[in-house]
Amino acid sequence: MTEQQLKNEAYKRGLAVRNTAVAAGCAAVLILSFIISMNTGYTKLSPQDTLRALFGGGTDKENLILFDFRLPRIVISMLAGMGLALSGCTIQGVSKNALADPGLLGINAGAGLMVVLYVMFFGAQTFLSVFTLPFLALAGAGAAAVLIYALAFKKGEGIAPLRLILTGVAVQAGISALTTLLVVKLDETQFDFVAAWQAGSIWGSNWRFVLALLPWLLLLIPYVLYKARVLDVLNMDDDVARGLGASVEGERRGLLAAAVMLAASCVAVSGSISFVGLVAPHLARRLVGPKHAILLPVCALTGAVLVSAADTAARVIVQPSEIPTGIMTAIIGAPYFLYLLAKSRR
């Protein structure tokens, strides 16, 4: 090897070490966020009490607070953060649009409409099963996504990224309008439920919701990670990707479907949480660059940190009441979105 090649190899090794360190750092922040979150809430528990309870030496009250109230909620926020972040990263990759977000594919709007319909017909109290809601949300999100995809599809050209985004915005606005129309007809308890869902309060704070979400993630996250290499190639011009031997339309459809399912299942249990799918991939890209093999895992970690931190903050900022997590993520996410928008216009 020449001197230059040796230098390059050393540089690449350094970069790999740095990326691993960044991923480890994100994991550490996530653990920190977990600890802080465990200690945060209406009832004050000291870190020592928490630790003791975690290792099985807690009082009944401590156990109840930690294991039945806080832990499932923290786990849900982290899982939802991961799923939404990976969904956003996938959508940004295949649409080659840095401003794309699961919400743009109609996921939140479609799921929201189904939640409203469900509540209208079955009421807010008669929740038959937490396991039906992910499927319903998925049906709504899927229908919205298919509609957007079909409208954005042009024969002979396939799906142009810009058209996808514009169609997404339009369809989403339409569905939201319809939802609002229906919400007006709800009674008070139904309305409260829908409002809470729409604001993204992580209402599914018990273990059954974790169980309802987990299978989706266990199926979809490995699929998306497995497709890292394909996402890298789809991130370039379609003609380049085709030239390299990627079946662009098929892969794009598969990955979009996975992204829709990921976001829909997360949104079904966490409520309409927005901007995580937009912000987390951007943060991750800044940290480790555009290669999906490292970008996706780091993105999942940043997403988990974002939502769990937002959920923790949501619990403490206006104690003893709390603000919904979705509003917290929007408070962080919306300005960031505007910043990106301003930057992209330059």
């Binding site: 390059n8 690449k12 290499r229 890298d232 190639v233 991130n235 370039m236 011009d237 003609d239 380049v240 030239g243 390299l244 031997g245 990627a246 890209r285 660059g289 555009p290 290669k291």
Partner: peptide
């Protein structure tokens, strides 16, 4: 291999990483 006119590389990608994409059909 086919190169379209004036292709765009994703932001932040290094030369080595882009060239490595040429191995895609073998991976």
């Amino acid at each position: 291999a086919i190169l379209p006119q004036a292709p765009q590389a994703p932001a932040g990608l290094t030369v080595g990483e882009l060239v490595a994409y040429g191995r895609f059909p073998y991976q």
